[in-house]
Design a binder for these strands. Sequence first.
RNA 1: GCCCUCGUAGCUCAGGGGAUAGAGCGUCGGCCUCCGGAGCCGUAGGCGCAGGUUCGAAUCCUGCCGAGGGCGCCA
Length: 579
Amino acid sequence: MADPLFTVAATLRAAFAQATGLPADSIDPVVRPSDRADAQANGALALAKQVGKNPRDVAAAAVATGLLADSCSSVEVAGPGFINLTFKPAFLATQLAEAASDPRLGVRSATQQRNVVIDYSHPNVAKEMHVGHLRTTMIGDSLVRLLRFVGHRTILENHIGDWGRQFGMLIEHLLDIGETEAAHELSVSDLNTFYREASAKFEASESFKDRARQRVVELQSGDAETLRLWRLLVDESMRSFNEVYARLGVLLTNDDLMGESAYNDMLPIVIDRLRDQGLLVESQGAEVVFPEGFLNREGEPLPLIVRNSVGGFGYAATDLACVIDRVERLHADLMLYVVGAPQAQHLSMVFAVAQMAGWLAPPVEAIHVPFGNVLGEDRKMFKSRSGETVKLSNLLDEAVERATASVREKNHEMSADEQAEVGRMVGIGAVKYADLSTDRIKDYAFDWERMLSFDGNTAPYLQYAHARICSIFRRAQIERASVRAIVPTLAEPQERALALTLLQFDSTVHDTLDKYSPHRLCTYLFELAQAFTAFYEACPVLKDGFEDTRESRLALCDLTARTLQQGLALLGIEAPERM
RNA sequence: GCCCUCGUAGCUCAGGGGAUAGAGCGUCGGCCUCCGGAGCCGUAGGCGCAGGUUCGAAUCCUGCCGAGGGCGCCA
């Protein structure tokens, strides 16, 4: 039911234990895919050293246990002590049939169910969502889907920027133009215009600046009318965010909102609790904590500023309140922060202080899942031609437009509606996949041509492979589900290769989650699509004269399509049945 | 100045202790009585530099070079 490499690793652990006398749970057999066989085990080399024997002898002794005979047709010791493993076709076929009969396609459940809080997306109220929000939203969404798929409980938290000094000027500007006009402007125009106008007045007018400052005080003191106006800004912004979320097809809803404002009441408590524990220090008029090991540019201890010198709470206070809330109220035992790489130091300081205060202690874990920037062709921050940040809504418009044009060009007979629908799936999928398919820690260059190409490691290529398989079943006029009990025959090398790749879906999903790196799943899906294409090229499915292999190959087709579809779904990408 | 991340083929990227470093695009050369040619097969071409650890290093450690980012009251 699991990856054969995983299964054989367990077998080898026992074999090595017998061969060396070491306890099985201390042994890593180091099983890897191999280009010389189906798999290779390299564990003998390290183990030989531990027990003072020749690596080849250790490998030979492990092989001699005979434990591998059930799953392997060939087991050979090679080189300095590698064990080359070739699986029995019948073993692989059985595993495939098991995966095919499983709604989760053979993916194991997590050994321990965790309660996971995922903090991601977090756009700012009164500002348009832009490319800067793309990665956190995509990566976070995919991690949620992956976590759920292996059985974890997930709590989504959209920590929107809905509080702070800028709301003084925004509310005053709102009053200036009138609520009706403001609501109109915020909905038909865009959020950025409203923000820019407010900001311009703030810069230009001293009296406006005074009003804005006064309004901040009223907001913070909970003045009802001010809060009502603030709520109006938040609601209008959410309308705009939700449009983008709907188009992206991400899981976030209003129920997941936990903006900065939600923690206001907790901020004094954070201060009290830090003070009670003797962690709070007054420094240059501010209340701070000095976590160990952090230095400023003068080499002096670097503080985490919880409350500034004029009595205001900064985001450090909010982030600490978040930790308390997530651990004590939500009972999270894993907290993922899908936040850009530049915040690394800030977050590690927050975590350090939370640990000092005892709020964050094993088995509870807080993990920063950092990511790099989206770059333009010039390798600098991705900007529009006019030099402005690119709005997500515009970006998605263009993606769908380009993809629809391409679909239209290649499917003249398809109805306009279907062209549009497929174009939407392809366009949105392309943007998402481009974002998820490179190692998140690196910057990546945004390139329309490449991401929408049907060749290479792209969403359209994977979607195409899926659509092709769907087309095979349409031609065959056979129910997909009817081939799921078939144990396929793996005679051709391309069939074997496809089978091995299909069975790696299990370990790929777990590996992807271990590293919180969706690009590993992307790489796998691309390899799967390539393995399928090679299979399809070499192994006729429906052609006359191949009736004997027909059902077996249809079974391989079906499992491939389902794995592609499920894999893409875990990335938040749709797979059309024709395109 | 200190700290963090990154540096792999012409380009875009995988690989993060195991044998001969992979893929896509592009290059060059093949394959069409093709189950969707939006395809397939082949080709040349590379681990920033220098040390170290190890039986074994693209991978771990140190230094240097280069790029980006962070470094007390913005979030």
